[in-house]
Structure formats: structure tokens, C-alpha cells
């Protein structure tokens, strides 16, 4: 059973993981790659536990412009100001 339905715009792009992520209740992150999204995959999994979420998105947004990502603007992680 899917833990939750999450819109792609509520997920964050994680540069390090090269994935869209969303908090998992275990403390880790649900993750899905652009490649998965292009293939129509809608399940984002957590690498640390059995839970997964259903990602709500428009596949065309990812197929149409794979480099520029004009269609959607998910939140990006901000750089952290040190000190």
C-alpha cells in the first residue's frame, strides 16, 4: 500500500542523489530519478525501508524537455550558509 500520494512539485531535486526526493517517516528519503519518470514510473521508494509513495506528475513534462525542465519547477535544495 502506497504510504502517500505526493505531487512532483512538492518533491525536492537532490543534486547528490540525482533524484527527486520526499521525506520518508523512517528518516530517510523517498527517491525517484528523472529517467524513471520518463519511463512513466510513479513509485518513489525509500532505500532504508519498505515504504513507498505514489508520485503525481505529468509524464509529458519530462519527455518534452529533458534538459531544461521548463515545465515544472520543483523546490530546489538551497545552498547552506556556513557559519
Amino acid at each position: 500500500m502506497s504510504y502517500d500520494d505526493v505531487e512532483i512539485e512538492d518533491m525536492e531535486w537532490n543534486e547528490e542523489l540525482q533524484s527527486y526526493t520526499y521525506p520518508c517517516p523512517c528518516g530517510d528519503l523517498f527517491q525517484i530519478t528523472k529517467e524513471d519518470l520518463k519511463l512513466g514510473e510513479e513509485i518513489a521508494r525509500c532505500p532504508s525501508c519498505s515504504l513507498y509513495i505514489t508520485v503525481i506528475y505529468n509524464m509529458e513534462d519530462f519527455l518534452a524537455d529533458s534538459n531544461q525542465q521548463k515545465g515544472i519547477q520543483p523546490s530546489k535544495q538551497q545552498p547552506v550558509t556556513v557559519a
Partner: peptide, 14 residues
Amino acid sequence: SFGQLGHGDYASHS
């Protein structure tokens, strides 16, 4: 990133 620090911007701080 979501303004949850309340500083008037979306910056993160360590």
C-alpha cells in the same frame, strides 16, 4: 528552502 527559518528568504544556515 521553504522559508521555515523565518528570516525573510529561502536560505539555509548551519
